[in-house]
Design a protein around this nucleic acid. Structure first.
Length: 104
DNA sequence: AGGGTGGCTATTG
DNA sequence: CCAATAGCCACCC
């Protein structure tokens, strides 16, 4: 287990229900300014039994970056809606839902 | 080594 | 608004 992964997991665990963060934001938080893509990769590699909220991590456009499932729907968006996040046209307002770690 | 591909992004038109 | 563009970086042939 790598040092960055440890940090990534720690930050992820802090994301409150009903809020989201972007790949780039997480990358910055763990000290990897251009590691957004790396973060995305880590999401896909998350252990299956993990309780970490991978679905609260979205892209900078406020959209889900994971492919649609067979039914043509998106599991990530469903999970977010279940937490009360409003999704309009497959898009989420970062202004309203993005978690700001240092604004507490 | 070296080209292609991603759960990316900021900028520009 | 979307599309193109140009950086970025880890991973996999």
């Amino acid at each position: 287990m790598d040092e960055y992964q440890q940090q990534l997991y720690t930050w992820m665990a802090q994301i409150p229900r009903g809020r989201v963060v972007t790949y780039g934001q997480l990358a910055k938080l763990i000290g990897r300014p251009n590691g957004a893509r790396w973060v995305g990769r880590q999401m896909g590699l998350l252990p299956k039994g993990s309780n970490l909220p991978w679905y609260r991590v979205i892209n900078a456009a406020g959209r889900s970056s994971i492919p649609l499932d067979k039914c043509g729907s998106n599991k990530q968006l469903r999970l977010l809606q279940r937490e009360g996040v409003l999704v309009v046209d497959g898009r989420i307002s970062l202004r309203r839902y993005q978690w700001a770690p240092f604004a507490n």
